[in-house]
Simulated assay, not measured.
Amino acid sequence: MASKSLFVFFLPLVLSPFFSGCAEAQGGLRVGYYSQTCPKAEAIINAEMRKIIKYAPSLGGPLLRLHFHDCFVRGCDASVLLNSANGQAAEKDGIPNQSLGGYGVIDVVKVKLEKACPGVVSCADILALVARDVVALSKGPYWQVPTGRRDGTVSIASEAFQLPRPTDGISQLIQNFAGKGLSVQDLVVLSGAHTIGVSHCSSFSSRIYGSDPSIDPKYAATLRMKCKPKDLTTLVQMDPGSVTTFDTGYYKQVSGNRGLLNSDAALLQNPQTKAYVLRQSTGSASQFFKDFGDSMVKMGNIGVLTGAAGQIRKKCFAVN
């Protein structure tokens, strides 16, 4: 999708007191998978993410988004990282993924892991661990990430259209998430990732230049000052003033009819998602943080390759 959002994750972290995640997930994944084969893997990834978030905190959103976009197409197999090759356009070149970023960060992490433990840590696990770390380093929750994923060898651009779209309504969103084994609760919880996201004007232009009653007129007027008709380049914060801090500000925005995308506003059109939005818009962040870690573990288990399936890519952008 066009927006830099969901529709559009070692060493102990001290930025958040919240801890979430189960000890073991289904599909052959487990916490501490690399404890014997590459015991410093998570520490290496965390050290790199600390550097990145310190000097480029705005990369938190794009790096988190990579994991979402990977898992929603072919499962969490790092297929989103593969370059187009042999005349076959890859996922990253599909229209919904053309605004993705952060690939260079993943490549740097992979080089360091290959130096420490050649051929051991998968690119799919790197995405999951990076996503966790950038959330925690953005003052969000920390959760244990079950690992043991292997990398896929197929990436097809047209399959990127399986991703949720910024224009989707609540029924489409629920159906899309259900198709991946994710619940209505997971939908509203994972949408909270938009607290550190930005979006292109083109993803919501029809809302602010149409007669959409689901958006606050004053907010729409403010957005029209930033986004001219047919603007394809300007980026707008999804949670204004909190773009690098993982918090519940997103739910405050949505509850006040200031959700940026139609898919954000749609959360008020279902009793369960609306109730969650309203609770998180006024309460403490602790429940959301726990829920987010739980839903991320669940999402990170979609279609994983384990055992002898797939491979451990030496370079994340190409098959071995």
Rank of each mutant, 00 (worst) to 15 (best):
T153L: 12
V154M: 13
S155I: 01
I156Y: 09
I156K: 09
I156M: 13
I156C: 10
A157K: 01
A157W: 01
S158A: 13
S158V: 14
S158R: 12
E159R: 04
E159S: 02
E159G: 00
E159D: 08
A160T: 14
A160M: 10
F161P: 08
F161Q: 13
F161W: 13
F161S: 11
F161Y: 15
F161E: 14
Q162W: 10
Q162H: 10
Q162M: 08
Q162D: 10
L163I: 02
L163R: 09
P164N: 00
P164S: 01
P164M: 00
P164K: 02
R165I: 10
R165M: 13
R165G: 14
P166W: 09
P166G: 10
T167E: 15
D168N: 07
D168V: 03
G169R: 07
G169A: 04
G169P: 09
Q172G: 03
Q172P: 05
L173E: 04
I174E: 07
Q175F: 08
Q175R: 10
Q175I: 07
Q175Y: 08
N176F: 00
N176M: 01
N176E: 07
F177L: 02
A178N: 11
A178E: 06
A178F: 05
A178M: 05
A178Y: 07
G179R: 04
G179M: 04
G179Q: 04
G179I: 03
K180G: 11
K180E: 12
K180N: 13
K180I: 12
K180Y: 14
G181Y: 07
L182W: 13
L182P: 13
L182R: 12
